[in-house]
Design a protein around this nucleic acid. Structure first.
Ligand SMILES: [Mn+2]
Ligand SMILES: [Mn+2]
Ligand SMILES: [Mn+2]
Ligand SMILES: [Mn+2]
Lengths: 220, 220
DNA sequence: ATTATTTTTTAGACAAATCTAAAAAAAGGT
DNA sequence: ACCTTTTTTTAGATTTGTCTAAAAAATAAT
């Protein structure tokens, strides 16, 4: 299992390749990974050869049982390392992803099990994403969360996850005092552009629809 | 800087390639890395191209200033990770090397600085080897240590380092209750084969010369 | 000083992972 | 149905890192 193969499996999983419904197109994978479709075709063949994906020419790619198990194991490592970086080394949530992209490829079952133990077997990573268990179970839904943009005016809820984990988005949230665990109150909605008026703690802000479609709340 | 390049630099350093006295032969590097001399020649050219080593055909290889700095940085990471694994994750000293071989290639200055801080800026790794500082200083000698085999009968000292860090050797030491910090008393020496009679704690053992040439004591 | 041996380098091949350009297949439009 | 556009694959090239076999240089032995 090379690093590149692992990255492909992870990407295919994130694009929904674990469902047997619609296979993932080579183009979609190429775009996500910032590579060329021809490179994806090559890798699709190699992964198929190894029994990690189902691939038939012009039909796209889906993960095999083994492929899903492997992808979840990498995602588990990625998210556990993210928790470690935040909780034990005081990294901020916008700094962890880049380093975790490297750490997720370290091959040592004992290492990740010990990290898991050190952290007290966390269920969610710093972005609110669920951490798969050692035997590959994942709570896909996580909390019964809903996008901020889909909730009616007047709703009060707790921020439980972000959909977009990019550095600029996370820094935007920091700047506005929004983080996981914060209580958010939807005060109003602008019909013209879908922007929302919020109360976060004791501050009030207006946020664009783009922001609202990338924040998950657990309403109460 | 690729992983392979980093491994070559580290190996050259460990073979004494930071001294300008005698360059390291391609054969010596090949043997140490369990690869072929022709592969080493190829890499020597590439590293020379990048200004990391001095290399002239048939003359062997030595590290440049930049090469030394780079090698020490990798060794620093390797040894800090070893300390982390032992102190924070309860790894034994014979388990850490293999995992550290992977972790030493993680590229994040912040990560290793934070690990260093978490550990309280340790000076020695679990095998008694000195940890280079952030700016590339290393206490080559470490303690004023001497090989057990070079000390006279009657000497009493503290075990401060091992020369060989291989799994079988470390497990041998564990089995005989020998670890870093333990007091060792040289009770006698067999002239025939150089084996030593020792007291370690309250136990007495006879150890072969091969063992004695791989254990460092600080005599007192 | 030649010859023989050992060490080191070169030449050529291969696998992994990528790219560009061209060909083939699929999907869309009239 | 036929033509056009988009998607996907193939063909051929490139880089890194490795190997084997052969050539060249350096060392050692007679
Ligand atoms: Mn991440
Ligand atoms: Mn995450
Ligand atoms: Mn080590
Ligand atoms: Mn060590």
């Amino acid at each position: 299992m090379t690093r590149s193969e692992e990255n492909y499996l992870k990407t295919i999983f994130h694009l929904g390749g674990s469902k047997t419904t619609t296979p993932i197109t080579t183009n979609a994978i190429a775009e996500q990974m910032e590579t060329k479709p021809s490179s994806v075709t090559d890798m699709a063949k190699r992964l198929s050869e190894k029994g990690l994906v189902n691939y038939k020419k012009y039909q796209g790619v889906s993960l095999s049982e083994l492929g899903i198990k492997t992808a979840l194991n990498i995602i588990r490592k990625h998210r556990l390392w993210e928790v470690f970086l935040v909780r034990k080394l005081d990294f901020t949530w916008d700094e962890v992803h880049e380093v975790a992209e490297q750490l997720e490829h370290i091959k040592s079952e004992k290492l990740i099990d010990k990290i898991d133990e050190l952290l007290g077997f966390p269920k969610y990573d710093p972005h609110g994403d669920p951490i798969p268990t050692k035997n590959g179970d994942i709570d896909e839904q996580g909390y019964d969360k809903q996008l901020l943009s889909e909730l009616p005016v007047g709703t009060k809820g707790t921020c439980v996850a972000v959909k977009d984990s990019s550095v600029p988005f996370l820094q935007y949230l920091d700047k506005h005092g929004i983080s996981i665990g914060k209580t958010i109150h939807i005060l109003g909605k602008e019909v013209f552009d879908g922007s929302l008026h919020l109360r976060v703690g004791n501050r009030e802000h207006t946020v664009s629809q783009q922001i609202a479609t990338n924040l998950y709340l657990q309403s109460k």
